[in-house]
Design a protein around this nucleic acid. Structure first.
Lengths: 133, 133
DNA sequence: GGGTTTGTACTCGGATAGTAGGTGTCCGAGTAACTTCGG
DNA sequence: CCGAAGTTACTCGGACACCTACTATCCGAGTACAAACCC
């Protein structure tokens, strides 16, 4: 059980955008260069972030990706959900008639973690992130 | 990101042992039948639980798996760690010189969840679990 | 009847295989800004 | 000088390949207990 590397990339991209360029669009090429990742793969995640409404894309020359208006509210959980999906991380596959107690406990534990990630806004920590290297 | 099905099985096995047979060894065959899972696959997880010190195996005739002495202290986290391993669920793969803030936040969130799972003992909930069907 | 052999019911561990999902690449299509060129 | 056509620099999305981990099965080996057997 591990968060995918894609989530790692996505979080760093969001940090970078918030810290250095909240208004200007940045091309995939620049982002990939900063992170040391391939452009083509990174673009997959950016597409997911767009679909989740966290950033917006500007196509054409001088285009790229830019934060949306409400970027100051974006939390860690938002980014993680955008990449990993919102499915519960545990689902009881056995068919004992009643509701599964185990399911309930693990789901509640997951909720604890999500609550923490929901309260951590990218904006709050991005200040210490300038430069990124 | 999801807990493996193996964790699901392992938790149910532990519940079953605690609820119905804290002292007597139970064979893989019986456990697999109760859960509706194949014996051979289930035995893999039982091996992990043994190595983690949660249960013990009694080989030979009338053998099987049995809880260890301190079974009343076993928590959800113990079982999950036995199956999934204890590795952190997030590791920053990028080499920006300084310590990764993102890493710290996600690790702390994970810690929140683990704390919850650590405080939930199998023993406490197993009473409501008799029958299991 | 006591000790040895055989049989049985288990666990243990390695080898193997199918499948799903994460990772990564390639390429064609679409779009917006900029440049060029004809009138 | 102005507008239309072409060029450039981007994003977008699908198709594809690779690799790892999870899921699952099979089988031979080892082990403890019980029954049978031999002297």
């Amino acid at each position: 059980m591990k968060y995918s590397q894609a989530t790692d990339y996505a979080l760093h991209v969001m940090f970078y955008l918030v810290a250095t360029a909240p208004d200007n669009p940045v091309s995939v090429q620049q982002l990939a260069e900063k992170l040391g990742v391939s452009q083509t793969y990174l673009s997959k995640m950016l597409t997911k972030l767009v679909k989740a409404g966290l950033i917006q894309s500007m196509s054409g020359a001088n285009g790229g990706y830019r934060l949306r208006r409400n970027w100051e509210d974006i939390s860690f959980l938002d980014v993680i959900h955008a990449i990993e999906g919102t499915a519960s991380l545990f689902e009881c596959g056995l068919d004992h008639g009643s509701e599964c107690l185990i399911q309930q406990v693990v789901t509640e534990a997951e909720h604890q973690m999500e609550q923490y990630l929901k309260n951590k806004k990218i904006h709050e920590l991005a200040g210490q992130f300038k430069g990124m290297d």
